[in-house]
Amino acid sequence: MDVELMLKVYPFFIKAAWVTIELSILTTILGLICGSLGAAARLSRLKVLRYVGAAYVSFIRGTPALIQLFILYFGGPQIGIQLDAFEAGVIGLGVNIGAYMTETIRGAIIAIDKGQVEAARTLGMSRLQTFRKVVLPQAMRLMIRPLGVNINALIKGTALVAAISVVELTYTAQRYIGSTYKPFEMFLISGLLYMIIIYVTGRAVAWLDRRARIV
């Protein structure tokens, strides 16, 4: 193992790691937005919205994320969607993870005991008031850990955007392999950096979960 080489090139990987982090953060934000809208649609009183939500989830979960990215990045211009690689990466991955988050958020909401809703409605609170003040605060606590699992998957999923040449951790490794012919070392650096990002994220999620726990 060429440790000397690893020490020489790793600063470039750190730079790439920031791109991965940036991608992850933006994707998480977009994913949470899509997931909230998706869950709202799936739990709507309106049948049409429930179908739209279900179609979104089953399309995204039924096709490979890589194909979704290719459709958006390579197929997009054909239907008038011009995105650079980074934008396509964020949107593609965000919409993708949003489908999984839809199910996470929906699951947490329907896990709240029906008696909670009945108690609030009986006091005269409206559906919306009940949702905001009684259901959501409890569901939020339930969804922290499973959303953490989604985010973990998403961070690793950002490696896919190397395929549309976004210069992040995986793509950077491939590029340095081209000049050094040392795939073991190069992929190892990338892997270690992914691990650090995931470890820190995991700790953050655990901390949030602990803080949110009901006495």
Binding site: D113, G115, E118, A119, T122, L123, G124, V134
Partner: peptide, 14 residues
Amino acid sequence: RQDIGMVFQHFNLF
């Protein structure tokens, strides 16, 4: 419903 108080078997406190 504001005029009708209800108490449940399982309390349903928040």
